[in-house]
Design a protein around this nucleic acid. Structure first.
Lengths: 311, 311
DNA sequence: GGTTTTCCATAAATCATGCTTATCGCATGG
DNA sequence: CCATGCGATAAGCATGATTTATGGAAAACC
């Protein structure tokens, strides 16, 4: 196989030839390509010299492909169109401005939502789309580059992971509730309060039993028990003054900082697990997704710093 | 569909990319292409800017294709190799130096053979191959660009034709024969001579009957009759002093000029037909075949001029 | 039939881009 | 720790692509 560069030193003339052959007319080809007729003539002549064979008959005031030109044109068309299509696909993909993030409704509404404005400021050209679902999606199957997951990364060997926040579980209530029912100073105090339960149907979430256990207590049998199957609704119930619930620190930090919620009982549960930004190893993040990922992680760091400073 | 030239202004970088992707190594690609590593780096960077997507990971002291690069490389490889193959085919065909000419054995040995040296001088780089056959070949079926035919071009509408020589039929003998048997001054004289007959099995050829008729005579019943089925052998028989035969002027001109044969009886038959160089309309002559055709025609003109001057 | 139009080819001049040279940086491995 | 290997980068250059300007020839038009 000959060296392609020696065979076709002026690859650009292939493009010219393709257009010229298609039109069988140099002037029109020149128009299409945004160049002059003379340049087309020059390019074709060069190609003919390279190949040692005329590609066009010059006849009347027109040109038409020779037999060799016809054949070559067919092949060049096919070859170039394949390359062109590929280039267009790649460019289109590179230009895509939307990045989809798979997350739980809790994360979406309690972590992302308060930060969307900031994100719009930092990454104005990125169109973030949040895909919420009841169970963690398999990103390898979905056309989704990024996800948020809580748990043990050892269970997701097919994903890259970057930690966003530790799993820290607080008992929280509103100032109004505390005013009415008194402040539970210890975990033991809490056993007399209205505890709101999350019954997460799919994802793992710690419950009061676990929380009390971590405080060295057992979960109190209690009459006034409210169970809700959605974390967002649990927090809304707390905000409505219905009682005390467990809240993931990274999700309720904004409300704690604003004073809407207060941690109570002086005990937190650190499960040793964490929440992660994840993306499949099988694909590559495009530039935009990378920026979103980095922004999320940076935001996580900012949040930790803010909490740390606040303590 | 976007303008390909805007999409890929530097088409040459495709070739560079193909090599670089194949080697996954810029330095080696540069070697293969006969350029410097810097140029490869530059070309790839340009392509990446065009596409808006990195094509290679720069890692350690190496590069490897990104996902996008991988895909693009596959398409570029296929596309370019198709074009390359086509270009190679065309070049090979253009470089072919052999030209085949289909002709009768008579034309081959009596017209071409004496001129081969001259042709080798005039067209030294062309390797002429003469294909002789008993019947005129169908050049559209055979991979033969040029042929020699005698007859009426109206019968070959699918061929381009260019006249090489009129059909002029002479009665000829050797000086030795004339010395021995006396010079036939008229056609009538010939009726007492040893007439050698050609019995052409396939191609049309005029015979003594026709010749005498054109002279206003009838073919003489004659005892000493020699019939040969090959024109070359007929002439050889004449040269051997066996008698008088009919000879196509354009074929025996060399011998007439050299004195080896002499036209006798003061009568020639012009049939109104002619001999032609022919080539099929369905294909195009390549450059070499054209040169051979033009040389043949020029040689025909030279021959006529020489005969005309000689008269 | 002459004039105009419409093609392509060609020559000269210009411009730009692709390429080279030279150098640096960085990571690896002896 | 230095040598080696490989890429990136910057600056300058040269070639080749492109333009402008012109000519020619066939066809179309009046």
């Amino acid at each position: 196989m000959e060296n392609l560069r020696r065979l076709l030193p002026s690859a650009a003339s292939l493009i010219v030839f393709e257009a010229a052959g298609r039109h069988q007319n140099f002037t029109r080809a020149a128009n299409e390509l945004g160049m002059t007729q003379a340049a087309v003539s020059y390019a074709i002549r060069g190609l003919e010299e390279q190949l040692g064979v005329p590609l066009f008959h010059r006849v009347h005031r027109a040109v038409e492909l020779t037999e060799a030109g016809e054949k070559f044109h067919a092949d060049v068309s096919v070859g170039l169109s394949r390359i062109q299509k590929s280039a267009e696909d790649i460019r289109a993909k590179g230009r895509e401005t939307n990045v989809t993030l798979a997350a739980s409704t809790a994360f979406a509404s309690m972590w992302m939502l308060p930060r969307l404005n900031r994100m719009r400021e930092d990454l104005p050209e990125i169109d973030l789309r949040i895909q919420t679902s009841v169970r963690d999606l398999d990103l390898e199957e979905e056309p989704i580059p990024l996800g948020i997951r809580g748990g043990d990364p050892g269970h997701w060997p097919r994903y890259h992971v970057a930690q966003l926040a530790e799993e820290v579980v607080n008992a929280v209530a509103t100032p109004a509730y505390i005013e009415e029912h008194g402040l539970p100073k210890t975990a033991a105090d809490l056993q007399r309060h209205n505890l709101i339960h999350l019954e997460e149907p799919v994802r793992r979430a710690c419950d009061w039993t676990e929380w009390f256990a971590s405080a060295g207590l057992t979960y109190p049998k209690q009459a006034r028990r409210l169970t809700i199957n959605d974390y967002v609704l649990v927090i809304q119930a707390v905000l409505a003054g219905e009682g005390v619930a467990l809240g993931w620190e990274h999700l309720i930090n904004p409300q704690i900082r604003s004073g809407a919620l207060m941690p109570v009982a002086g005990h937190v549960l650190k499960t040793g697990l964490a929440f992660y930004v994840v993306w499949p190893r099988s694909r590559e993040l495009n530039a935009q997704a990378k920026r979103v990922r980095d922004w999320l992680l940076e935001e996580g760091r900012r949040d930790r710093a803010a909490s740390g400073a606040g303590e």
